[in-house]
């Protein structure tokens, strides 16, 4: 397996092939969007999202919003209380709630 350079929050890190084998696609994707992710409390893996709207409907502080086509996004990052309700209720494992 070829060694993939993966961008982390500190900068570009070349992961060992053994380390990337243990990572899932989502985890690698999370690493790639490091810049935005650091600001946003919730990370959406849009390739798996089916736009069902459960995360938006059950967010206790209404910090998530939906675009006209139904795509969820973090509308008010400052409102997030890190309860991880969206993480636990996502049927498609597309939401990763960041720990505080």
């Amino acid at each position: 397996m070829s060694v993939k350079p993966v961008k982390s929050r500190e900068g570009i890190i070349i992961l060992d092939s053994e380390e990337t084998e243990n990572l899932s696609d989502v985890e690698i994707a999370v690493e790639k969007v490091s810049g935005d992710y650091k600001k946003s409390p919730v990370f959406y893996y849009y390739e798996w999202c089916k736009k069902c709207g459960i995360c938006v409907a059950f967010c206790p502080t209404k910090c998530l919003g939906r675009k006209p086509d139904g795509t969820p996004f973090v509308a008010f990052p400052e409102k997030c209380v890190h309860c991880e309700t969206c993480d636990r209720l996502c049927p498609d494992f597309a939401v990763t709630g960041a720990k505080r």
């Binding site: 985890e27 690493e31 993480d87 494992f93 709630g97 960041a98 720990k99």
Partner: peptide
């Protein structure tokens, strides 16, 4: 190695 958010499911 950077820290990765703990998503156990994946």
């Amino acid at each position: 190695m950077a820290t990765i958010p703990q998503k156990i499911i994946h």
